[in-house]
Amino acid sequence: MHKNPQEKTGLVFVSGAGLDSQIWSRVVEGMEHPCLLVEYPLRNSPVESRRRLSLEDYVTHMKKQVDEWGVRKFVIVAHSLGGVLALKLASELSDRLAGFIAVGAVIPKNGGSFLSVMPFPQKIIMSAILRTIGTKPPESAIRAGLCSDLSPDQAAKIARGFTPEAVRVYTDRIHVSVPDVPKLYVKLTQDKELGLSLQDQMISNLSPQSVRSLETGHLPMMKDPDGLRAILEDFL
């Protein structure tokens, strides 16, 4: 007897900073579970209109999409900066949350922010950068960090489509604990954006039941979508 799709556990995908939700499209191809690729607010509006948004505004926008989706139980899959937003989202949907998967994601402690997890010199440099040039890194930095192991075509596409986020997504603190559900951290062993020691710190903050590794840079959903999909299906 087939389960009604509404009864199947779904997957809610939360992207990293600057990235479009479609970055997950090759991972979700052929998955047997309902998948929702959440969008961040005012994505197609001018940068100016997004500038004032708070982290709370992002989460409210994401929660509305999950509520309208109608799948009752789901696992959140969060990447990079998306980890911060996903923790807040998870706390607001705890009665429906079946699991939490962090893919090279930032997991601050209760009361922390994205910026708070950065090592000391980087924290100072980054807060100065956010204040002066905003949240879109130069193309060379996107190619070297985010896209370190991608093809030139893939890297060009990411750099071209990179959407600057509101500064407050990096600086607003979240006052939530890690959700009390099965958790998994997917460690990216070639990541030039979030190094291994920082990922180890995030793993310690998340205290997942298991850790899996992928030999990719910061964007495994582009470099190895099949490998990532297999890990997600194992977890489910």
Rank of each mutant, 00 (worst) to 15 (best):
M1N: 15
H2E: 14
K3Q: 11
K3S: 12
P5M: 13
P5A: 14
K8Y: 02
K8T: 13
G10M: 10
G10L: 12
L11A: 12
F13T: 07
F13D: 04
S15E: 09
G16L: 08
G16N: 07
G18H: 03
D20E: 06
S21R: 08
S21N: 08
I23F: 06
I23S: 02
W24L: 08
S25W: 03
G30Q: 10
E32V: 13
H33G: 11
C35I: 05
L36A: 09
E39A: 10
P41D: 08
P46T: 14
V47L: 08
E48V: 08
S49K: 14
S49F: 04
R50S: 03
R51W: 06
R52H: 06
R52W: 07
L53D: 02
L55I: 03
K64V: 13
Q65V: 15
V66P: 00
W69V: 10
R72W: 05
V77M: 13
H79M: 12
L81I: 12
G82L: 11
G83D: 00
V84E: 01
A86D: 12
L87H: 04
E92L: 02
L93V: 09
R96F: 12
I101L: 07
A102T: 14
G104P: 00
A105W: 08
K109T: 13
K109W: 09
N110Q: 12
G111F: 06
G112V: 04
F114I: 02
F114Q: 10
L115K: 01
S116E: 03
M118L: 15
P121R: 12
Q122H: 09
I124F: 07
I125G: 13
I125Y: 04
I125T: 08
M126N: 02
S127I: 04
S127L: 03
I129T: 05
L130N: 05
R131A: 01
I133M: 07
I133D: 01
G134P: 01
T135L: 04
T135C: 03
K136R: 09
P138Q: 00
A141P: 01
I142M: 09
A144R: 15
G145I: 12
D149R: 03
P152L: 12
A156W: 00
I158R: 01
G161C: 04
F162L: 00
F162Y: 00
T163C: 04
P164W: 04
A166T: 00
I174V: 06
V178H: 06
V181P: 07
K183M: 03
K183R: 15
K183T: 06
K187N: 11
T189E: 11
D191G: 14
E193K: 01
L194E: 00
G195V: 03
L196R: 15
L198Q: 10
L198C: 06
D200A: 15
Q201V: 10
Q201E: 08
M202W: 10
N205W: 14
L206E: 12
S210C: 09
E215V: 13
P220L: 00
M221L: 04
M221Y: 11
M222S: 01
M222R: 02
D224V: 01
D226Y: 10
L228Q: 01
R229M: 02
I231F: 07
E233Y: 06
L236S: 12
